[in-house]
Design a binder for these strands. Structure first.
Length: 490
RNA sequence: GCCCCCAUCGUCUAGCGGUCCAGGACGCCGCCCUUUCAAGGCGGUAGCACGGGUUCGAACCCCGUUGGGGGCACCA
């Protein structure tokens, strides 16, 4: 039987990195096995769901490079793929469950349940006591007469609930440890623990990979599946695999509150989709003993759910950055330029698309910039000096490099050396500056080039100096040298 | 309180009974290269939570302890 996995988020608020990891694993599992990846939107909570969040979810999935075979905007044989459009289905299945005796009407209020447990000397936290399982028609009529609206509960079987988890092996819950749970609210609204398995069954999902937080609800789903299979709605029970948490500082599950959990910040900083996917994959999975850099295609090739680790993984920004930097450096120059343009344009440094001159400059500087960046947004600070008329000199850099007569002397000598240079090329510039500053003034390279760098780039960190000067051109270079000289002279 | 999950360097992990006085990566610390910052090269630091078994032999299997995490809604 071919594998069918699914990703079924609810469109509420921001997109969580842990959620994306779950999507990635489901997708990779489907792709590795030649199966189908289904995308379904669980928008049954009108109060929290939003259209904007829905769109954003699709956008994030596509950004990461995860395509779906069935789902919103692509359709498929099991649609619709938004739960808000599937209401009648749930009502129909619920009715069948009641008719077949798997589900029943329950009138007890929480207070009544708690009171009964207390009276029996039990902990009220034990939950529902299955008291309404065998209500007579007369009793039900009496409750209705009081104006009560029953919820629908599933009658749990009296046997251990066991499954072989794809990542954890055998997991067992003792018979009687899970109370009959609510499928449909008193007002007729179907609940998540009901609609989720119903949709999975109808969409013929074979492998459910989801967060560890849902592990305790699996026994209920097993029971539901058995009932659904009995009434012909499901063809059987899927395999389950519970993925470990992605945690933040202090081993706590990365919360929605934690800014670190928002995928947007990584996109905005300029993580590459393949770099971020690579890091996400490392959260619970490894491709080989001595390797951790790989493409998404290589992940698909090697992915095996069975080898996913069961222990929680801490999200480590430093490592994520290191992985991304490696991918960034491996990018062909053309592609690097293409990806960096939106960031430079967004900062107002270049136009989009770049002018021919901007493009020329970018192509020259790209390989030099590429190897000293970890995320694309850094290009803005690193390359701004090439695309403006006058640089703004960073005060800290000025204080460090543009203070006193020594700096004035260096800047004057540099200007003099470059003013009448016959060929304004990188080797000629290097030669001229070394001659003038190192030999001429007897300065150590460090002292000689520090002030020049700040004059040119406005900061102490920049791409290689001579290349930068050539790209800048004689006029702007001399102008900046003079401007910096004035700063140094006080 | 009840139920469940997890346990190898600071972090992510490899290890699926002998080839492990435990391998890789990030981080950190040195050194080299060097016009800055990086990158790159070389080297270093650091770990099988504890206690019992099983076995000729355990990081690997079993039990317990401890520690960490999660779930117990007419939310998803």
């Amino acid at each position: 039987m071919t594998v069918r996995t699914r990703f079924c988020p609810s469109p509420t608020g921001m997109v969580h990195v842990g959620l994306m990891r779950t999507a990635l694993f489901n997708w990779a599992h489907a792709r590795h096995t030649g199966g189908t990846f289904v995308f379904r939107i669980e928008d049954t909570d009108a109060a929290r769901d939003s259209e904007e969040s829905y769109r954003h979810l699709l956008d994030c999935l596509r950004w990461l490079g995860l395509d779906w075979d069935e789902g919103p905007e692509v359709g498929g044989p099991h649609g619709p793929y938004r739960q808000s459009e599937r209401r009648e289905i749930y009502a129909d299945v619920a009715a069948k469950l009641v008719a077949s005796g798997h589900a029943y009407e329950s009138f007890s209020t929480n207070d009544e349940v708690a009171a009964r447990r207390m009276a029996a000397g039990q902990d009220p936290k034990l939950g529902y006591d299955n008291a309404d399982r065998h209500l007579t028609d007369a009793q039900k009529a009496a409750f209705r007469a009081e104006g009560r609206e029953p919820v629908l509960r599933l009658a749990m079987p009296d046997e251990d609930l066991v499954w072989t988890d794809l990542v954890r092996g055998e997991v067992r819950f003792a018979a009687g440890s899970v109370p009959d749970f609510v499928l449909v609210r008193g007002n007729g609204a179907p609940l998540y623990p009901f609609v989720n398995p119903v949709d999975d069954a109808l969409m013929e999902i074979t492998d459910v990979l989801r967060g560890e937080d849902l592990l305790p609800s699996t026994p209920r789903q097993l029971a539901l599946y058995a009932a659904l299979t009995d009434i012909g709605v499901a063809k059987g029970t899927p395999r389950f695999g519970h993925l470990p948490y992605v945690t933040g500082e202090g081993n706590k599950k990365l919360s929605k509150r934690d800014p670190q959990s928002n995928l947007d910040i990584y996109r905005e900083r300029g993580f590459l989709p393949e770099g971020f996917a690579n890091y996400l994959a490392l959260l619970g999975w490894s491709i080989a003993e001595d390797r951790d850099i790989f493409s998404t295609a290589e992940m698909v090739e090697a992915f095996d759910v069975t080898r996913v680790s069961a222990n929680p993984a801490r999200f480590d920004l430093k490592k994520a950055e290191a992985i991304n930097a490696t991918h960034l450096r491996a990018l062909p120059v053309e592609e690097f330029v293409e990806r960096v343009v939106p960031f430079l344009a967004g900062a107002g440094l270049i136009s989009e698309p770049p002018t021919p001159e901007q493009d020329r400059v970018l192509r020259v500087i790209a390989p030099l910039a590429q190897e000293r960046m970890i995320v694309l947004s850094e290009a803005v600070g690193l390359l701004a000096f090439l695309f403006v008329e006058d640089v703004e000199i960073d005060p800290a850099a000025a204080e460090k490099q543009l203070a006193g007569p020594e700096a004035v002397e260096v800047l004057d000598a540099a200007a003099a050396a470059l003013r009448d240079l016959p060929e304004f090329t990188t080797p000629a510039i290097e030669e001229a500056l070394k001659t003038a500053l190192v030999e001429g003034l007897g300065r150590k390279p460090r002292q000689a080039f520090g002030p020049v760098r700040v004059a040119i780039g406005g900061r102490t960190v920049s791409p290689p100096l001579y290349e930068s000067i050539e790209l800048l051109g004689r006029e702007r270079t001399l102008h900046r040298l003079t401007a910096a000289r004035d700063v140094a002279a006080g």
